[in-house]
Structure formats: structure tokens, C-alpha cells
Design a protein around this nucleic acid. Structure first.
Length: 232
DNA sequence: GCGACAG
DNA sequence: ATCTTGTCGC
């Protein structure tokens, strides 16, 4: 199955495919050092099939931007909770292929294994590219957890029948927690540690935050040029 | 049947 | 996700 063909899948077939991919997930210690970390995100205009995908490259541990790539693509697969990867991975792969240098690890905006079939977008992307990935989501999809204490870096594990699938992390005081889970080829503890090292005073870790700024800028710039949005 | 539901 | 101004709280 190729990502480019995802648009032809029915939700039922997509779910069946996730069940197959699940067999290939590797949650393990990442030994390679992380010199460059990447952040990926997508932006789009409501009701439009045009999607703006981008990947930002940051130097560790400074968190300074050292590169990026972006693409304007199309998607017909709708947003369905639990099947996000089928909608966003194809465009993200296009941006990934355009990168001159690949990061040592990529952070995606969404869940990793904190998913009913352990196939959040971060895990899915990691399997397709065979790259270490971490999922950093702004809201919860799956897993039960207690409210983290209201202090920076307070955390509380997310469970699924006794198994820890992720962690709710208070990345900033007085802000809602973010949900971290390993995607592929990295451990749970490393995922949390890595994300903590990417926090720079904002609720959202730099890789994801910078990626969001990037794709949003690309979208606004294009919307003024896109026929569908210019009235003249 | 009811509530939950990444982006 | 995106649409949007002011406004409450630290």
C-alpha cells in the first residue's frame, strides 16, 4: 500500500490497514544522538481540499531554525477521528522528500501510540519513512489519565488497560497539558525527555510550534493567489 | 442508546 | 483545522 493511494480507501479498509501496520511498530531506545530535530504540520482552509504541508528543521539543543520545506498539495480523504494519518501523511511525505537534510527525529502534531490501534499519525509516518518519531498533541484522543499538577513539567501517564500509551505533560503553568507519546523507534521516557528539552516558554514545543507558523504563513500567502479565494 | 472524538 | 475581538487571569 502506498500513501498516494490512501485517498481510495474506505474508512473500514483504513482501519484494517492500521491493524496490519501495528505489527511493525518498534518502541525502543533511540541510541543515535539528536543533532537536528524536525517538526511537521499541516494547514488548510475550511471546505478546501488544498493542504499546506511543511517540515521545519531545528538545531539541538539551541532550537534555532536551520532549514525547512513546504508543499501545496491536495487531499480528498476526510478528517475522521482515528484516521488522521490517511488524510495528512501523503502531503507530509511530499514535504519530507523535498528536504535536503533529514532530521534525526521528527515531531508530529498528533498522537503516536496513544491511539486505539497504536497508529496515531506520528507512528504511521515513522513506519512509512523508517524514521524515529514522537507525537505531540494539543488534545487527547485515547487513554485515561489524571489531571497533571499545575506546575511546569508535571506529568501523568495515559493508560489503556494498564498499559501506558502516552503521557499528559503540563508544558506551561496555567495552560492545558499536551499529550506526548512515542511514534516509532524511540522509547516512552525518551519521548517525554526530548519534548521537555524542546519547550521554550510556550505551551507547544518548538518543532511543532515553528512548523505551525511555517505552514500557516504558506497558506495565507497562497490564499491571496489561489483562484478559489480571490474574488477577482 | 449515550458520550467521546488527534487535526 | 479555521473563523475572529475582546477579555479574564497570571
Amino acid at each position: 500500500m502506498q500513501p498516494a493511494d490512501y485517498e481510495h480507501l474506505t474508512p473500514s479498509q483504513a482501519i484494517a490497514y492500521q491493524s496490519e501496520l501495528r505489527q511493525q511498530i518498534h518502541i525502543e531506545s533511540l541510541d543515535n544522538p539528536i543533532n537536528v530535530i524536525g517538526g511537521a504540520d499541516i494547514s488548510f482552509n475550511k471546505y478546501s481540499e488544498t493542504v499546506y504541508a511543511g517540515i521545519i528543521l531545528l538545531k539541538c539543543p539551541e532550537m534555532t531554525v536551520v532549514g525547512h520545506s513546504s508543499v501545496i498539495s491536495r487531499t480528498s480523504f476526510p478528517y475522521i477521528s482515528g484516521l488522521l494519518a490517511f488524510r495528512e501523511v501523503p502531503a507530509l511525505l511530499e514535504a519530507w522528500d523535498k528536504l535536503d537534510i533529514k532530521p534525526d527525529l521528527l515531531v508530529l502534531d498528533g498522537q503516536g501510540i496513544a491511539h486505539e490501534r497504536r497508529l496515531g499519525i506520528a507512528t504511521h509516518f515513522g513506519l512509512v519513512t523508517d524514521v524515529p518519531t514522537i507525537g505531540s498533541a494539543k488534545s487527547r484522543l485515547y487513554g485515561r489519565h489524571q489531571e497533571p499538577a499545575n506546575e511546569v513539567f508535571a506529568e501523568s501517564p495515559m493508560y489503556d488497560r494498564g498499559e501506558i500509551v502516552g503521557i499528559a505533560l503540563r508544558s506551561k503553568k496555567n495552560c492545558n497539558p499536551i499529550y506526548i507519546s512515542p511514534g516509532h523507534r524511540v522509547s516512552m521516557d525518551q519521548s517525554v525527555q526530548i519534548i521537555k528539552n524542546c519547550i521554550r516558554g510556550y505551551r507547544i514545543p518548538e518543532p511543532t510550534r515553528q512548523a505551525h507558523i511555517l505552514v500557516n504563513r504558506v497558506r495565507v500567502e497562497d490564499s491571496g493567489t489561489d483562484k478559489q479565494f480571490s474574488l477577482f
